[in-house]
Amino acid sequence: MLKFNGHRREITADPTDPALKPRLRRRSTFEYAAWIVCCLLALGILLSVATNPNFKWGVVAKYFTHETIIRGLMLTIFLTVASMILGTLLGLVLAIMRSSSIKPIAVTAGVYITLFRGTPVLVQLIFWFNIAALYPNLTIGIPFTDVSAAIDINALMAPITAALIGLTLNEAAYMAEIIRGGFSSVGKGQIEAADSLGMSGAMKMRKVIIPQAMPSIIPATGNQVIGMFKETSLVSVLGVAELLQS
């Protein structure tokens, strides 16, 4: 739409213009041959799986909706959702710490991220499950006062608790790097503009950095959700009756 001396004039594209028509790509003979080979291969695999009596599909169909399987699936979904939510929140805190200009805070977050990303998840799960062997009783209190509370780690660290703690702490390390990468994608000009407006650090993070970092964070977080759903199978070694053990 154009304006001339206060008058508006609309310009619309001509749909019959050849330049606006989408270009058609000519398919080669090799592409058709590749499609045929792929379809035949997929059909052969499906027929082999469907007709193989060793799979016993009748038994699979009978037990697939069994109450035990459904309970295991629900527990797997719970572990995935809870670990992702808690891990993302903790990862956000770690990402802010890692980006801090205060060296001890940044180094502490860096050590945490390196430690939990550098050790296998299974090892971490077993460690938290057996933490009571190192700290059977833990006392939390205010220094130089009589205010304290004793915690029985043996009673607290049930298999499901150890699984949730292990998955959450491990996921937080990965989410911290994903979120920090999202922070880095925000242009310097945006941060300088927020500073020029007198925004505080918290407001700048909430109003400027996080909203603009989300397009970079969300796709990677989706991959982490898929990975977490599969990683929950590791908690079966702790005796947690998730989907794999069920």
Rank of each mutant, 00 (worst) to 15 (best):
K3E: 15
V235M: 05
S184K: 15
Q212V: 03
I70H: 11
A19F: 11
I226N: 14
G141W: 04
K62D: 09
A34E: 13
Q124I: 06
F30E: 13
G187L: 07
S233Y: 00
A194K: 02
F183Y: 12
I11F: 15
P22A: 14
K21C: 05
A19G: 11
K230P: 02
N5C: 09
S28N: 14
A173H: 00
S101Y: 12
I11E: 15
I36D: 04
L73A: 15
A194F: 03
F127A: 07
A172N: 03
G239V: 04
E177F: 03
V208Y: 07
T68G: 11
K56C: 07
T76L: 02
L94S: 00
R8K: 12
V107S: 14
Y135M: 09
V235P: 00
P159I: 07
L234G: 04
L86K: 02
A158C: 06
L92V: 07
G118D: 05
R27N: 12
V235Y: 01
V147N: 13
W128N: 00
R71F: 12
L73W: 15
A241M: 14
V111E: 03
A149I: 07
S236F: 04
A202V: 09
A193R: 06
G141H: 08
V240N: 01
G181H: 03
R8S: 09
G201V: 00
I85M: 15
R23F: 06
K207Q: 08
Y32N: 15
A193E: 08
E242Q: 05
G44D: 06
A163Q: 04
S100R: 04
S101F: 10
I96F: 05
L43M: 12
Q224K: 12
D14Y: 04
L46R: 15
Y63D: 08
L90Y: 11
N170F: 00
K21E: 07
S246I: 02
E171C: 07
L75Q: 01
M157T: 07
I96A: 12
L94I: 04
N52K: 14
M214N: 01
Q212T: 05
A220I: 05
E67P: 02
Q212W: 06
T29S: 14
S236K: 03
L79M: 12
Y112N: 04
F183H: 01
Q124Y: 10
I142F: 14
I217P: 01
S148A: 10
F116Q: 02
A132N: 10
F229N: 05
L234M: 12
I142Q: 10
R8Q: 11
Q124M: 04
Q190G: 06
V107G: 04
N170E: 01
Y174K: 00
V208G: 01
G187R: 15
L125H: 01
D195C: 06
F144A: 07
G118L: 07
I210T: 05
G222P: 03
L156G: 04
I11H: 14
N170I: 02
